[in-house]
């Protein structure tokens, strides 16, 4: 029985470690497999991955994990200590179960993270590679715009955007994305400048490749790993900015369960009922740590300078 199970597993492994891939698909799978096995060899990366996986599971299965609906008030049970009355992490000032609110809040956090990660780096990557490849005036104009965005402290700029657009989680995400792209543009441009004069770019030009093909097919793949690393490391900052906006009342609006907003309301009870603000704070801490650990290890795996040997 065990033999029949191990056999296909063995051949999948052989397929993934073959040094003579037979198709484009296999070649790609092998590269992913090697990056993956490098990544999981690092214990810190595994910790980061586990934290992020748990966060995702939590968000997906929130109704199953949470003990109560997140917005169910019970004024009789308000401000109960952790463990009391079946409330794992206690209740807040309206008697809502904090554990359940944290569980549902992970959905908001994940939404922020996913939307920002999909927009800001892509925009930054495009701006940076175009500026770096074309150079000249294009470069100057694009980079000065980037500089203008970089010159403001991120939270202040996000605050200004939200103030202009009106408070709300969607506008908060939009504001964070708007303030998050310039560093990616910088990273992508620096990477572009270092590969722009490489022989393989000259070779592509001699093949007759146009500028668009060179940027998307040759330069972007070289910038991608730096940007991905940067995104993962920035995730903690993005979560904190979202929480900060929530804390200031400019992000998620009540009664939506959002970790930053939860801390904000818990602040009033900080001295008498510490858990109300501390529990969502711990959630932010753990998730930020998870992204940072993963980002650090991704750097070891993806960094082209390390991978070249």
């Amino acid at each position: 029985m065990s033999e029949t199970v191990s056999k296909p597993a063995g051949s999948v492994k052989a397929w993934l470690t073959s040094d003579t891939p037979g198709s484009r698909l296999q070649a790609r799978a092998i590269n992913l497999w090697f990056a993956w096995s490098d990544l999981v060899r690092n214990p810190l990366a595994v910790v980061g991955l586990v934290i992020i996986t748990l966060l995702i599971l939590m968000a997906v299965f929130a109704p199953l994990i949470a003990s109560d609906p997140p917005n169910q008030q019970n004024l009789a049970d308000r401000l109960m200590a952790p463990g009391a009355g079946g409330h794992l992490l206690g209740t807040d000032e309206l008697g809502r179960d904090i554990w359940s609110r944290i569980v549902y809040g992970s959905r908001v956090t994940l939404q922020v993270v996913a939307l920002v990660a999909l927009t800001a780096p892509v925009f930054g990557l495009v701006v940076g590679t175009v500026a770096g490849t074309i150079g000249g005036w294009t470069d100057r104009v694009l980079m000065r715009i980037t500089d203008i965005f970089l010159a403001f402290p991120r939270l202040i700029l996000a605050l200004a955007f939200v103030a202009a657009l009106g408070p709300g989680i969607v506008n908060a995400i939009f504001a964070i994305a708007l303030t998050a792209w310039p560093p990616y543009a910088r990273v992508a441009r620096a990477e572009t400048l270092s590969v722009r004069r490489a022989d393989y770019i000259a070779a592509a030009r001699l093949q007759g490749a146009g500028t668009l093909r060179i940027i998307t097919g040759h330069i972007m793949p070289m910038c991608l790993s730096s940007v991905i690393i940067r995104v993962t490391l920035d995730m903690a900052g993005i979560i904190l900015t979202a929480a900060g906006l929530g804390f200031l009342g400019l992000g998620a609006q009540p009664p939506l369960a959002e970790w930053g907003a939860m801390i904000s309301t818990g602040r009033q009870y900080l001295l008498s009922h510490w858990w109300v603000a501390t529990m969502p704070g711990l959630a932010i801490l753990i998730v930020s740590l998870g992204f940072n650990l993963l980002g650090d290890s991704l750097r070891d795996v993806l960094d082209p300078r390390g991978a070249q040997k």
């Binding site: 484009r24 022989d199 393989y200 592509a204 070289m222």
Partner: peptide, 10 residues
Amino acid sequence: GSLHPRHTID
């Protein structure tokens, strides 16, 4: 230096 490090021969 003349072959893109992330492109397969194909």
